[in-house]
Nucleic acid binder design. Structure first.
Lengths: 195, 195, 195, 195
DNA sequence: AATGAATGAGTTTTCATTCAT
DNA sequence: GATGAATGAAAACTCATTCAT
């Protein structure tokens, strides 16, 4: 069975399996055995490639973060004006790959893990800051700095809040209505006279 | 040393200890020993009073939910018009007892636990529905049913999103600015002409 | 089964069991299960009381060292002149409790462990220094400082060498002939004219 | 890349690596991977050449024994009288190749391993007997059989004891002073009148 | 009422060993 | 001849839970 060049294949499979396993059993109850068997390998191999459970989980988180980053960057690259850059960020956050039940579960689990794991917290902060800075820059071209900051904060909270609520309802998550809601809130706020 | 009537005292202490422990170590790593020693009792006793770890955790969740419910009800009782009822719900959600780091951690942890625990999910849904229904009723007196539904959904997502973001930043959570933001979003949306 | 005040009893039993187990299977192959079952308890309990395998082994080493120290101190207390103090140290080293196969095995194993474990090395150095200093003081009253140092070094090496050789031969270790040999070498060297 | 005639090169490299690894991590913690990577090969290859960990370790021990034997035989071949034969044995035991930290660690480790491994014990006994018999024959030409036996035993113990102590101190082992000490003890004892 | 003792099941982790390539 | 892939068994360790006192 052993073939050459399996390492990247196994790593990917294990990360995908970790997302599945977190969705199915919850971060608090996943075991290496769970994950490994979902990936079709032995627990020993998962250890061998990642060095331990914690590191496999962290690698999974990094994967999620970089997928999300990719979705946003792709869209940003095509956006030619501030309005479209805002839309790029919002839509990237609700992209198909991101907004499915297993991925949502994993995201949420990492959010919580970040409360108690320094490295996870660091990773998440980098993402949060980048998201807000992308929004902020686009908003500043459309309104005052103060208002831009307010709207950016609201938008970020709204995105996270919609995620968390969709994860709970477990109904087939509907990205389009979420996008509509967030964009509505942002452009609605922009259209308002200053408070 | 055993005293009479200790049960309610112990139960309260253990629930408070569970919240602390979840904040300090994360849901995935709390042990009965953790919780018990924070409450100043033996693990065996925690067991004795709650019947097991799962049940102690569920009791903790119920406590959190009922505290939040209380904060909202108190404020609703004093609200005489729709605007104030909306404010009551928002402010209840960011009440002092709720918006401190340990409680936020615990809330978040339960949100995640609810993904994989039927009873936790049921409890959370009851709360979510009540929150939305309170908001919805008040909003319907101020706008169309459709728009009320949209705004209610947005408000709920915003509240959850702000929580989750504050928990991550770990900076001294500031309820007032959160309240301002949410109320601004709600009343801003209400003031907009229909899309 | 659980009784109060078992901790010291279990600790002693586990340390004794560790010595047995090291003798029977060799330091490289002892398992916590081995030791625990020899002590008549579960492996979990051994962990509970000592915190881990390494610490149980270190506690065992400390026990051995303190036993030996006791044997020597007892004899030193009764020795009224330098010759007798020398004898006290030598005989303490070959005392009954020390010179039996299981204890010899354990000692030897710790000697080797000390090569790669900082804490074990520290413990052993303390013992080695004390042994040599005891001998040295007594010898200095009987000869020149230089010669005393030489003889002390030789005596210490001889004691260790005899131990190691007895352990290998596994024949019923005979403390008396060992004592005779070491004392003969020391007093023989003392009687020699300076080189 | 596979080359012909690699076998003896690999075997030597692996044995040298085993000695290093034992010194660095201790017999109880060496792994095949440790050894193999120090030798610059895969663990699988080490296995292939020696048939298993145990056998590689035994081969390493045999190597050590034969090196020591060589050092002694070379010196014995040049010794023309009993005194020089004694010196040959002593100096062979403290020969440069033998008296360095890594080799001492490995020797010591094997001494201990011999407690619980029949084959290792057998190998060590052969060496011990040869050492003692070489000394004994030389001593018998210089004194009574009884005294020769006593001195031989003492000398052997002294050699082992000095090794073990040097290994512990980890200071740059000084073979010359060790040789002086042992020869001093032997010739000192020989010069003494019968007890 | 409360504890400390104890266990056993479950999890992570490590490694020698095997094997296809 | 040599490797990297993979496993499985064994070991350490953790912890909820039980129970005698």
């Amino acid at each position: 069975m052993p073939k050459l060049g399996m390492e990247p294949i196994r790593r990917k499979a294990l990360i995908a399996a970790a997302i599945d396993a977190i969705h199915a059993r919850g971060m608090a109850h996943v075991t290496m055995g769970d994950i490994a068997s979902r990936a079709g390998v032995s627990a020993g191999l998962a250890h061998h490639y990642f060095g331990g459970k914690e590191q496999l989980l962290l690698a999974t988180m990094r994967h999620l973060l970089s997928e999300l980053g990719g979705e946003i960057q792709t869209r940003l690259a095509e956006a030619k004006n501030p309005e479209n850059r805002i839309r790029a960020v919002v839509r990237g956050n609700f992209a198909a790959g991101q907004f499915c039940p297993t991925v949502i579960s994993a995201w949420l689990a990492f959010y919580v893990a970040a409360q108690n794991d320094a490295e996870a917290r660091r990773l998440l902060r980098v993402y949060a800051r980048r998201l807000e800075s992308n929004l902020l820059h686009a908003l500043r071209e459309l309104t005052s700095d103060d208002k831009a900051a307010q709207i950016a904060e609201m938008a970020a909270a709204l995105i996270d809040g919609l995620w968390i609520r969709r994860s709970l309802s477990r109904q087939s998550a509907d990205p389009d209505s979420a996008i509509e809601l967030v964009e509505g809130a942002i452009f609605g706020a922009l259209s308002l006279p200053d408070a």
